[in-house]
């Protein structure tokens, strides 16, 4: 198991695209700050940019950044035959899946680390500091965001093992991310309307609440409304289901 993980991590660190995505994660908060500053300049209403604004806006992009990065890192292995080299080296299919998931996790954590360094660096140097968040709550928020990102990363790996080799592997994870984003917007709007109170009842209220509480995608939509327990459980649930599905499917499917 360790040999394949070792090789996969080496492959990750030799991949130029990975550094491009890491740079993207680093630059995005800076771009975000620039956009906020321009908007505030034109609004001219005396408002200011805080670390909170950048911190809570970053995860909305990270869903797509993590998804695209994992697709770019793993799908080529199915197409260029390098996956075949692993299978002929006596590595079991389960080991390949676990290694892919761990590699995706490492890549996601590094990406989040870049975003973290950039957000807090910019926050300290170029904003007015924290508004509603404290340093402790901001760090906890970041940690929970990374957990949700890891769960989404593992889920994307599962989708790739199901569709790997076909163009669906390039499209499905992105479509899922987009649909989940739309669903999250609808659910949030119904559960926490800007005006008035929530009018949902019965089963619909239960389903909407469960989605909002336990969906990793829902947590990457700005300031969170739920506690560390719900977010961790949601991430754990998605990771576990993705792992089971990926192992079951990949061990059965024919590869080209």
């Amino acid at each position: 198991m360790l040999r394949i993980l070792n090789a996969d991590l080496r492959e990750l660190l030799k991949n130029k695209l990975f550094y491009l995505y890491a740079a993207g994660a680093f630059v995005y908060p800076l771009v975000l700050l620039g956009v906020y500053k321009i908007v505030i300049h034109f609004l001219n209403d005396g408002s200011a940019v805080y670390v909170d604004d950048i911190l809570t806006a970053y995860p909305t992009l990270s869903i797509f950044l993590v998804t695209v990065m994992i697709i770019a890192l793993l799908v080529p292995g199915f197409k260029d035959g390098t996956l075949r080299n692993k299978m002929m080296a006596g590595v079991t299919r389960s080991e390949i899946v676990i290694s892919m998931m761990l590699t995706a996790t490492v890549a996601t954590v590094i990406l989040a680390g870049c975003g973290f360094l950039s957000t807090f660096g910019i926050g300290c140097l170029l904003t007015k500091g924290f508004s509603e968040l404290t340093l402790g709550s901001a760090l906890l928020y970041y940690l929970l965001t990374v957990l949700s990102e890891i769960a989404i990363g593992v889920f994307v790996v599962a989708l790739i093992t199901v569709f790997g080799g076909s163009n669906l592997a390039l499209v499905v994870p992105l479509v899922v991310a987009f649909i989940c984003k739309v669903i999250t917007a609808i659910v949030e709007d119904k559960l926490f309307p800007e005006q008035g109170e929530c009018v949902l009842k019965g089963a619909r209220l239960t389903v909407y609440t469960l989605y909002s509480k336990y969906s990793a995608y829902a947590h990457l939509m700005g300031p969170t409304r739920w506690g560390a327990f719900e977010i961790s459980m949601g991430a754990l649930f998605l990771t576990t289901v993705s792992f089971i599905v990926a192992i079951a499917v990949f061990n059965k499917r024919d590869l080209a």
């Binding site: 030799k14 035959g81 075949r84 002929m88 080296a89 006596g90 590595v91």
Partner: peptide, 17 residues
């Protein structure tokens, strides 16, 4: 799996990084 460690293959096109 152990037997496969003793084989090498180039199937269709060479699998390279």
């Amino acid at each position: 799996c152990q037997s496969r460690r003793r084989i090498g293959a180039v199937v269709e096109s060479p699998a390279l990084y």
